[in-house]
Amino acid sequence: MFSGTPLLDKIQYELGAQEPWPKDVKLYQPYEVEQILLPDNANCLAVQAFLRMCNLTFEVVSKSNAEFMSPSGKVPFIRCGAFVISELEPIVQFVNTKGISLTSELESDQKSDMRAYMSLVHNVLENSELYLCWCDKETYNEVTKPRNGSVYPWPLNHLQTWTKKSHVIKRLKMMGWFSKTIDQVYHEVENCCQALADRLEGKEFFFGKNPTELDALIFGHLFTILTTPLPNSHIANIVRNFPSLINLVQRVEKDYFKRDTMR
């Protein structure tokens, strides 16, 4: 568990690096079938994809209060020995300290590009998903509200959903997304997908023949957008207009998840 003090955290990281990857690593996330929401599902899937790409063993544990157990308040998080780490980038850093990296063969400019595209995906796709779930009335009433409150008894289900909505709206306002219209949000998603497709240029993965954490992140978001049933499927239709991205999603799913749920 982290101390909250940067220096102590660093020392603990370094000490942890000397130990091999334990076999009992657990990945905590909300219940997939009845509870998890689009942005959380995307992030959970991205971390799972990354760990599978690194060939690391882990067990998925579903908890209704996973986000309250997380040190950053965001899902997913992993428990690896004495360490509890949440969100993709810190998990990537932690895995790197064990001497396992998907980017060790990249040039420095490729690493810069990767960080920039990861920012783009975080900023555009994650905020679009949050906007869709919490600001689009139809999606909020039909999907977000019942799913988010499903694990709480009345009246806690309403209170918890209301509190979370106000947090998300605060965040979207801060990021300048709350004032956008739904069409502007779709336009942002389209531009983002176009930028990603232009970069992919028909390659197997973004930086050659091997995947990186960028591929894992994009897989998490696009797979979730494509497979989550929503009242309005416009966002999924936008992604379907980019065959190279669909191919990437199918490739990652086939290589690392070995399921056949894609159409």
Binding site: D113, A116, S119, L120, C192, Q194, A195, D198, R199, E201
Partner: peptide, 18 residues
């Protein structure tokens, strides 16, 4: 060109977010 436009968009977000 298209690729550089995408790169510009990504780096803009990266800088503004960081």
């Amino acid at each position: 060109d298209g690729r550089l436009q995408g790169l510009s968009m990504a780096y803009k977000r990266y800088f503004l977010e960081t």
